[in-house]
Design a binder for these strands. Sequence first.
DNA 1: ACCTGAACACCGTTCAAGT
DNA 2: ACCTGAACACCGTTCAAGT
Lengths: 220, 220
Amino acid sequence: MAASPRSRRERPAKPALTREGIVAAAVAILRAEGLRKVTMRRLAQELDTGPASLYVYVRNTDELHAAVLDELLGSVAPVPAGGDWRQRLEKVLTAYTAMLLEHPSLARSALTAWPSGPNYLRLVETLLDLLRSGGVPRAQAAWGVDLLLQHATATAAEHAGEDTPGEWRALARALREAPSDTHPHIAASADALLAGTPEARLSWAFRTLINGIERTAVPD
Amino acid sequence: MAASPRSRRERPAKPALTREGIVAAAVAILRAEGLRKVTMRRLAQELDTGPASLYVYVRNTDELHAAVLDELLGSVAPVPAGGDWRQRLEKVLTAYTAMLLEHPSLARSALTAWPSGPNYLRLVETLLDLLRSGGVPRAQAAWGVDLLLQHATATAAEHAGEDTPGEWRALARALREAPSDTHPHIAASADALLAGTPEARLSWAFRTLINGIERTAVPD
DNA sequence: ACCTGAACACCGTTCAAGT
DNA sequence: ACCTGAACACCGTTCAAGT
C-alpha cells in the first residue's frame, strides 16, 4: 500500500486546475506585482504547470484580463440609500473609478474588453436606477450610462503609463510656452488647463456629464 | 582608388539614421501592418540595423508611439470657417476621432502618452477658440477641452481589440437576458442600451458633453 | 558620438504526444 | 477530456566593444 500523497510531501498538494482557481491566482499576481506580470507563463509557473495547460480554461490573455476585472468589480461597495440622486450617482461612479485607479493597466484593458459579468450588470442597473429617479428619459439614461462608465474607465486608464512624468511635463511645458500670437487662447488659459486636483476634475467631469445627459435628447 | 559606394551596390545606399527617419519608417509600418508591428526590432530590421541603434534617438517604445501619433495628428484637416460654433466643434472632434479610428491601438496608447507636439497644440487652440466663441467661460472651456479630447481618444481606443466580437456579443447577450426581477431597468432598457449607430452615438456624446460643459461651473 | 553584435530575460500560442 | 514538454516565432532593453 503506497503512502498517502500527504505524507509524501511537505508542500500542499497541487490543486486541480479550474477556471476559478486560475482567475484567483491571476488576481493575486495582479495585486502583488501588477497586470504586466499577469501573463500566461507567469501564471502557469505560479500554478506549477505549463502555459499550455491554461488554454483549456481561458481562450487567451485578453479573456484572462477581462475575467480578472469582473472579479475585482465585486469589491466595489454598493451605494448607501438616501440622499440626492446626483450625489449618489457621483458617489458610485467615484467608487468605481477609485477601484480602477488601483489597477490602471486593468482599466486600460477594460476599455477594449468590456466585462459582462454579474457585478458589471449590477453596476449598470444601479446607474440606470439613479438616472431614472432623477427623471432622465429612458433612452438618454441608457446612452448616458455608457458615457459615464467610459469616462470612469478612460480616466483610470490614463494613469496606466507607470511613470508618465515625462509626457505630462512635456505637455505642461508646451502649454505654458505656447506663443500668444499663434496660440492666444492657450496662452490665456494655460493655468486653467493645468489647474485642479485630480479629484476636483473628476467630480466636475461627472457633474458635467450628468448635466449634459439630462438635457440632450437621443435622435428619433 | 576604390569604387564609389554607388557603383558597388545596386540597392540604394543605406540612409543615415535620424529621429525623423525612424519616425517616418514607424509610420510606414503602422499604415501597412498596424501598431502591433511597430516594435523596436521590426523597425530596426526595416532600417537595416540592429535594435540597439534606435535607442540613440528614441528613449523607448512608448516614446516612439507618441512620436508616431504626433505625426499623424498633422493629417487632420482644419475646420472650415463659418457656421454654428457647436456644429463646427462637433466637426473638428469627429475628424479627430475618425483619424484615431484608423489606428485604434494608437488611440489606446495616446490615452496614456499624451502628445504635446505642434499639431496637438493647434487642435487644443481650435477647441478653446470655438468654446469661447460660444460664450463658455474660460475655466470651463479649459477643462472642457480635456473632456472632449479624452472622449474622442477613448472612443477610438475602445475599438483596439481587433476582433472584439466575442466580448461585445457576450455583453449584448447578458443585457438582453438580465432577469427583470433583479434587473428591472436593464430589462426595460436593453434595446435602448444597444441602440444607435456608432456615428449617432458619437454625435450624441459630443453634444451631451458640450451641453454639460456650457452649464457646469468649475469649483471656486 | 554613433553604431553594432550578442546576450539577458522574457512573451503568446500551438501541437503532437501522453494519461 | 485534460495535461504536458517542447517548439515556433517573436518581444524590450542593456552592454561591451568597435569605428
